[in-house]
Amino acid sequence: MQASRSLAQTFAALGDPTRMAILSRLAAQGELTVQEIAAPFAMSLPAVSQHLKVLEHAGLIARGRDGQKRPCRLNVEQFAAAAGWFDHTRAAWEARFDRLERFLATTETKGDGHGR
């Protein structure tokens, strides 16, 4: 239950374009301070901080402490959990499609003897 709640928070956090842009910047540039993260956005620092809180609560980023600075970095473990869910779900759907394909192949073969 906890894992599914965590994944729901992850996917909810990923559903916002600003948060996706923040994560993309962290992936490309590594650790960044809140001011560095906020620089390209046309929004207030408190608004960016709110997005960071959502990302942190979802486990997608972690904040450190370096003197006065609070650098943010990606939490790759949470991304791995989300990727694992996608892999599991994709495999389940591929298995379903394979079964459907086999079923359709057998019904087409059986149907060939009926003069179609």
Rank of each mutant, 00 (worst) to 15 (best):
E101K: 14
V34P: 04
K69I: 09
A62I: 11
L52S: 01
T106D: 13
H51T: 01
D98P: 03
F41H: 07
E108M: 09
A105R: 11
T33G: 07
T89K: 11
R90K: 12
G59R: 00
I37R: 01
P71E: 08
R63M: 04
A83G: 08
S44A: 12
R96H: 13
A39S: 06
A91G: 12
R65A: 10
R73Q: 14
E56T: 05
L55K: 00
A82F: 12
V34I: 07
A92C: 11
R96E: 15
G67C: 09
A42T: 10
L100T: 10
Q35I: 05
R73K: 15
Q78K: 15
F86G: 10
D87M: 11
G84M: 06
L52N: 00
R70W: 06
S44N: 06
V54W: 03
S49E: 08
C72K: 03
A82H: 10
L45M: 06
W85M: 14
R65C: 07
R65I: 09
A81T: 12
F103N: 12
S44W: 04
T33S: 10
A42L: 07
F41Q: 04
S44C: 05
A58W: 00
F97G: 09
F86M: 13
Q68Y: 11
F103K: 12
F97A: 14
L60A: 02
T33F: 02
A105Q: 11
P46Y: 01
Q50Y: 06
L55G: 00
A42E: 12
L60F: 03
R65Y: 04
E31N: 08
W85P: 06
A81W: 08
E101L: 11
A47P: 03
T89R: 13
V34S: 06
E36V: 01
A39F: 02
V76E: 15
G64A: 12
G64D: 11
I37A: 02
F79Y: 12
S44V: 05
S44L: 08
R65E: 08
V54M: 03
P40K: 06
A47I: 04
M43S: 10
G59E: 02
I37N: 03
R63G: 02
Q50V: 03
G59W: 01
G59Q: 02
N75L: 13
L45V: 07
D66S: 15
R102Y: 05
E36A: 13
L32K: 05
R99V: 11
